[in-house]
Amino acid sequence: MGELVDARGLACPAPVVKTREALKSGASHLEVLVDNATARDNVTRFATSQGCQVDVLEEGAFFRIHIRRESPVEERSLEASVAPECRPGTESGKVLVLSSDIMGRGDQELGSILIKAFLNTLSESETLPWRMVLFNRGVLLAVEGADTVTALSNLATLGVEILVCGTCLDYFGVKDKVAVGTVSNMYEILDTMFMASSSITL
């Protein structure tokens, strides 16, 4: 059973905002209740734009909208059929490697500011990587309390797969604090690197 978002009685754009929040928090299956056609169409439009599968059921005085997040491959084909010019592109094959929790060598404080700005910019970019691999201190970007979690969650919502090195999480003692991405292993990381059409290491 998916997460339930009751947006009945709410006027536009609140139902879309609530749907977006639920998807951002990582839900892969949602049921959104709305009580007017405007909200039904806008929520449907939003979920479709995010590459989700959407089904609408009319139940008396309200609508029940089923939203399922699909795998990235299906997301792309879905996106392409709707309005390609508006979708951020998820290029399969491009891998972004984050091996540190700062950007560049040198000043620690500056590096933290830069990596946050980098991830925020990336999450608003037209071109997105297929996967992101986080290892060594890079895994700290994805744990609770890190100010980069929001940007990474946005990227995940846009269909970017985020692999977080399990060995590294263990080493830093934060395995139970992962806030975004899937805990991964060296086999998968190796596979990802080999499958990559190109990889960018930060």
């Binding site: 536009c12 879309v16 405007t38 806008n42 439009r45 010019e85 508006c86």
Partner: peptide
């Protein structure tokens, strides 16, 4: 405008 419309940011007045 197009981007926001396709994300469901269409006001009830337009409907």
């Amino acid at each position: 405008v197009e981007e926001m419309a396709s994300m469901g940011m269409i006001p009830a007045g337009a409907y």
